[in-house]
Design a protein around this nucleic acid. Sequence first.
DNA 1: CTGTTAGCGCCTTCAG
DNA 2: CTGAAGGCGCTAACAG
Lengths: 325, 325
Amino acid sequence: MANIKEIARIAGVSVTTVSRVLNNHPYVKEDKRRAVLETVERLNYSRNINALHLLKGRTQIIGVILPMINHSYFGVMMEGIAQEALKSGYQLMVSQTSYQPEEEQRMLEMMRNKQIDGVIICSRSLPLEHLEAYNPYGPIVLCEEIGPRPMSSVFLNHYQCFQEGIRYLWNKGHSSIGYSISRMEGPSSSRRYEAYCDMHEELGIPVNPSWIYDHCLDIEDGVLLVRRMLEQADRPSALIVTSGQVAAGILLEAGRQGLRVPEDLALISFDNMPISEVLGITTMDNGIYTMGASAMSIADELIRGTTSSPMTKEIPFQLIERSTA
Amino acid sequence: MANIKEIARIAGVSVTTVSRVLNNHPYVKEDKRRAVLETVERLNYSRNINALHLLKGRTQIIGVILPMINHSYFGVMMEGIAQEALKSGYQLMVSQTSYQPEEEQRMLEMMRNKQIDGVIICSRSLPLEHLEAYNPYGPIVLCEEIGPRPMSSVFLNHYQCFQEGIRYLWNKGHSSIGYSISRMEGPSSSRRYEAYCDMHEELGIPVNPSWIYDHCLDIEDGVLLVRRMLEQADRPSALIVTSGQVAAGILLEAGRQGLRVPEDLALISFDNMPISEVLGITTMDNGIYTMGASAMSIADELIRGTTSSPMTKEIPFQLIERSTA
DNA sequence: CTGTTAGCGCCTTCAG
DNA sequence: CTGAAGGCGCTAACAG
């Protein structure tokens, strides 16, 4: 309610002095400082942050674009982002896009409007060229490999990661290998598909497209995957799946249908959730928490101007052997 | 970059005219309008929203306080909030608090600072009295029953809901009934505990505190619950659990341990997630999506001043019979 | 050490 | 139909 002018009037000083006290500047006589503080207290004054935003041209808010928040993959990534944001003093503005381009655009526009200082894109559907147009307005950090583009990115080498998964299964004696993904169109999915094909060529085994299961995100999708699979005449003996949740769903339904894991069906999951550890699921830890944290810290550096050119960071992955493969 | 003054200068009109065009006011000659629009286009102008925020004293942003985002219960609630926010033109600022009071407070302070117009509290650890102090700064909508307090709330009758669950199990022949919760201290947990005790008294069966399983949120917790339970000499024959995820975890581990559901262990879950449907889990649909949506719409009404006094809304629940109880 | 003053970018009376 | 001017609340030179 009250503003700085009123505080000044009542405390019998100038607005500058009030501002100085509020911002802990030195050179304010102790009695004036106390008078100000007391008035602030008495009037229950609180400063209007919007005035600051306008004045500074910055808001200390980062926008986060992700398709869905209610999914462990992005949930964990968010956790990493949030953790780092807290450390470096940013607020987060999250937009759950469901992959709707208009929603992604809306957040980008917020950056143009100076409502947010930068954007982290966990997953997108807008084309890269389109994003680039927003480059002048603030840093854009993508969580994917984007090649030689003038934007920052934090990424996992999906190709290598997937290759290693397949090789591991092959070494365990599997030659009928399938996998699940969350959506066919995503950039990481195509990278995986390449790895899948290349590895099969290298190992001299045929690729079977009907062993690629789309739309797998959560437990229920794992359950449904098993049901789908059991209807197939020709079935894979091993699967690489999208997440610990999906793996759990598979395990659950496999149990009900009398499929033994890993004897009848081997499983590698692609993240390292608590559930994977509890259930002993062999996992490719793809460091998504780190990915989120790195994205945020890059955004911070870019905003603070420590670095001006786009930054790139590859996140390491690691296979954790447990008992499902 | 460019501001309204520059547009005015270049287009050869006054700032007022520019503002009028930008806000679709009538009474602007067509040629001036066009000149402005063209300049806006050419300079790639975009207005600074912070100036508006300052001027209007409102931001069209709602703060959402929730302990964790990466959990289906709050995920679904968020979905409801987000859906409604989109409809009424609000942005959302989410704070993942992990139940840390300082984080909750931080968001409340943002309201005081005029950074957000209102707050929706999905779950909290700050005491109600404390929240009330922020009443003058904007509407606070809680997602719980708060009794006669000057704040708005959307809630489920946990007592009745739980009672009905127990009665259902009792009618199915169970007299050893346990349940899981997410955290012992929460207000809804105490309501459930009351219902649990009262029902047991009514039915003349003894209460067994060791059948109350704390910290159950996700699949892995369901798995661990079964392991914990199997170590107990005296075991419940039926469980009411926190979520579809927990139920799935129980089902999974029960299968591995040779426990049949519902013969050896009956199950009711407390929400209605996709997983519950896919797995045929008997569920108490507690309408959390609706809860989120209602909370947002109440916040909107309060902000727009349609209503000034706090509002209260009870969300209905409904038992969905499937095959686990 | 302290106060005056000029904006940050925009909208909105109030006079033409 | 259009423009000048004031002000939203705050900070940061710039003078004392």
